[in-house]
Write a protein that binds this DNA or RNA. Structure first.
Lengths: 269, 269
DNA sequence: TAAATAGTGTCTATGAGACATTATGTA
DNA sequence: TACATAATGTCTCATAGACACTATTTA
């Protein structure tokens, strides 16, 4: 490949780089032509889906809510719950917000009002051929379900027929049983994100019951980070939150196998 | 609103929550009907665009690369560079990857090979009516251009005609001159993300020349965080990076208005 | 020489982590 | 009584920040 005399080249950390002073003609034509036609709706559009990583922690075990696919491809394989974003058919009626689509799927699958759960956009997965049928771009969200709400989610799954529509599966088991599409990657991305955020945000409180002990909160951190924390040191970290009024004492004590523990409540900001 | 006798209700931090044991019939029908038809391509799809926040720091000033819109809506208003994701017309040919679309737009607008720049997905903006013409879901990316590459970007803008196609605007000026669509929000989100990541990642090295002084690196941090750092303390932080072999000494010295400074180089992992 | 920035050193406060000790329940 | 976990205390080390001081250049 030879650069024309008017071209620029410079050496960088990535090696020699050529900069053409004229943008390549074919690119320009391509782009403007593409845009012109695109507005005219001649070019194909992708489907856009939302996929949800719905997580909880029960009995010191991270669990994710999964469905089993009833259609090809990946028929019979577990997958993240998801749905297509509903798009209107005119400029006046453009359909539902992206966040609303995620909240809708979350409510559908859990039976809980989405405003009672923590829901946040995770990442958008858009490789070509990630769905063999057609081009699907998936905006992934993750949601956290407090363990005291889990029974309500399970109750919802048992109503329609004998086989549950969605089940909680241990995150540790999802390694040996791959998910449909690129959902294993999405799941891993979600856990990684939470693991990164738990140290400097309040999301840990979305994974304990409304009232909780320091030990319960600690085990949430331990499950997410995959490491053990010194109980005494963790307690000190916690007491700073108490001083900062992020949490407050709740009445009563939690009875355990040993000495009863004080219970606390998160002061939602 | 009255709950049926079989419904469950429970009190949470968010108030009283009702859980219907049976999923609402109308929802279920809606969903399955929707999905069935969707696969048949009867339902409308959104357009998916990538919008890029391309940033650099020149003369202790954070700048963003903006274009001026030549079409309605927002004709004549500044906007982030962007483009539609190219989607194929069959299941075999599904078009370009989402990341590839972002890299393509980045190359088109800067004239630089995208692999020589830092590019990362930011967030997906999908509110209905964010584009008045039609439903557009925008996957935003941000890119960082080292200041020693800026002249090449500017050279590219001058070729086609007299008026540049894209210009660097000071971030501080974008507050008084709102951008098209929700691009002001996207821009703010990008700067916030960078501000959060600069403390625990290596992205600061994407905003200094290939070789740089400690003072130059410090002023990048100061511009991004909007605060002043103590030169001595910052230097110590930096020396740990030197010990950890994240950076290394480069030959020569940078001549300044005062005492010349040692120059360093980032050891790309 | 004055101004400016590079570069070094010192002191303090804070938080993380290792580890020991006491307190209070259950089996 | 043995065991388990709650709750407290102590010590060390790493880091952030305030601040003083020296070094080396240009104007």
């Amino acid at each position: 490949m030879e650069a024309s005399r008017k071209d620029l080249a410079f050496r960088t950390r990535e090696g020699l780089i050529h900069v053409s002073r004229k943008p390549p003609e074919i690119d320009e034509e391509d782009e403007s032509e593409f845009l012109a036609h695109y507005q005219g709706e001649e070019y194909p559009r992708p489907s856009v889906a939302v996929d949800l990583v719905i997580l909880t922690i029960v009995d010191v075990d991270l669990k994710v809510l999964l469905v089993r696919r009833s259609e090809h491809p990946f028929k019979g394989v577990r997958a993240l719950p998801g749905g297509f974003v509903r798009v209107g058919d005119s400029s006046k009626n453009q359909g539902e917000d992206l966040d609303a689509a995620a909240a809708r799927v979350l409510s559908e699958k859990t039976g809980l009002p989405s405003r009672s759960l923590y829901l946040e956009q995770l990442y958008t997965f858009g490789k070509a051929n990630r769905d063999p049928r057609m081009r699907v771009i998936s905006v992934a969200y993750y949601a956290l379900v407090r363990p005291d709400l889990v029974p309500f989610v399970e109750a919802r799954q048992m109503v329609e027929n004998g086989s549950p529509r969605a089940v909680w599966l241990s995150f540790s088991q999802t390694g040996s049983e791959p998910l449909a599409f690129d959902h294993s990657e999405i799941l891993k991305t979600a856990v990684k994100r939470i693991s990164g955020k738990i140290d400097y945000t309040d999301i840990a409180f979305e994974l304990v019951p409304a009232t909780f002990t320091i030990g319960e909160l600690r085990s949430v951190h331990e499950v997410i980070k995959g490491t053990a924390y010194d109980p005494g040191n963790f307690r000190r970290r916690f007491q700073r939150m108490l001083a900062d009024r992020i949490i407050e004492k709740a009445p009563g004590k939690r009875l355990t196998v040993s000495r009863p523990a004080a219970v606390f409540r998160f002061r939602r900001p």
